[in-house]
């Protein structure tokens, strides 16, 4: 796969404070187009805060944040047309069916009814979920919900998709399945920005950024990081950094 070198996300000196608490302390990083960029850290390291700022849900206290070529502060609505988002908190309507959820989110992105219909069928076929298209979301297992939520997040073909701990609470096999979807999305040209605290998932990323107490402590490809810290896996890298 050809990785382009153009930056799709540019962050300079991003600071986010909640009162005296500094959640993001002077973050500076770039994400290249088509990359799978992992944002790693323990709970409370500031991953979600940064991701919310990047996806236009929260204002930065200071710093420059550009996503898909637009400033998140001044051109928020333009940013939103170009991104997809999936949160750790559940984002599908539990009392709607799979199809109704897809139709609703497709609809509010302004996609045409015909397009939504065609793409929904295509999507359900790929996910092998045609037989449950009229089931309520609440009746499905967590792993399936997550796959559907991800598919909904990229339904409108965004340039970037932000995933906030997308695989929390499911078994390793389902997680592996989920990552297949991420790879598919990445192959189709979507930049993936994912936060996680599962270190095995870090291995799947093109590049990772490790956060601790609001600061970026390390940023590179998993291979180079392991090399640098003389570690067997990302888990060891993380433990050395977080200590």
């Amino acid at each position: 796969m050809l990785k382009q070198t153009e930056n799709i996300i540019e962050v300079k000196n991003l600071v986010k404070k909640f009162g005296d608490f500094v959640a993001n302390d002077n973050l500076t990083f770039d994400v290249k187009q088509g990359e799978i960029f992992g944002f790693l850290g323990a709970n409370g390291a500031g991953k979600t805060t940064a991701l919310k700022i990047l996806s236009g849900l929260s204002f930065p206290t200071s710093g420059i944040v550009q996503v898909a070529g637009f400033d998140v502060y001044r051109e928020r609505e333009k940013v939103k047309k170009n991104i997809g988002y999936m949160s750790q908190k559940f984002s599908l309507y539990e009392d709607l069916t799979v199809k109704e959820n897809i139709r609703f989110y497709g609809g509010i992105y302004g996609l045409s009814g015909k397009y939504i219909k065609e793409k929904t069928e295509d999507l359900l076929k790929r996910l092998k979920m045609e037989n449950i298209k009229d089931s309520l979301i609440k009746s499905l297992p967590l792993g399936w919900k997550q796959k559907i939520a991800f598919s909904v997040a990229i339904f409108h073909n965004p340039k970037i998709v932000f995933l906030d701990e997308p695989t929390g609470g499911v078994d390793p096999i389902t997680r592996r399945d989920f990552w297949e979807l991420i790879y598919e999305a990445s192959d189709s040209g979507i930049t993936v920005f994912v936060t996680t605290h599962y270190m095995d998932e870090a291995e799947y990323c093109d590049r990772v950024c490790i956060m601790d107490q609001g600061r970026i402590e390390a940023m590179d490809t998993p291979a180079l990081l392991k090399n640098q810290y003389n570690a067997k896996n990302m888990d060891e890298v993380f433990i050395q950094i977080a200590r």
């Binding site: 047309k81 991104i83 949160s87 908190k89 559940f90 984002s91 309507y93 509010i108 302004g110």
Partner: peptide, 14 residues
């Protein structure tokens, strides 16, 4: 409470 509002807020809906 469900968190779905966040998903809506991230869309370009006015």
């Amino acid at each position: 409470e469900m968190g779905t509002i966040e998903q809506i807020n991230v869309t370009p809906i006015r």
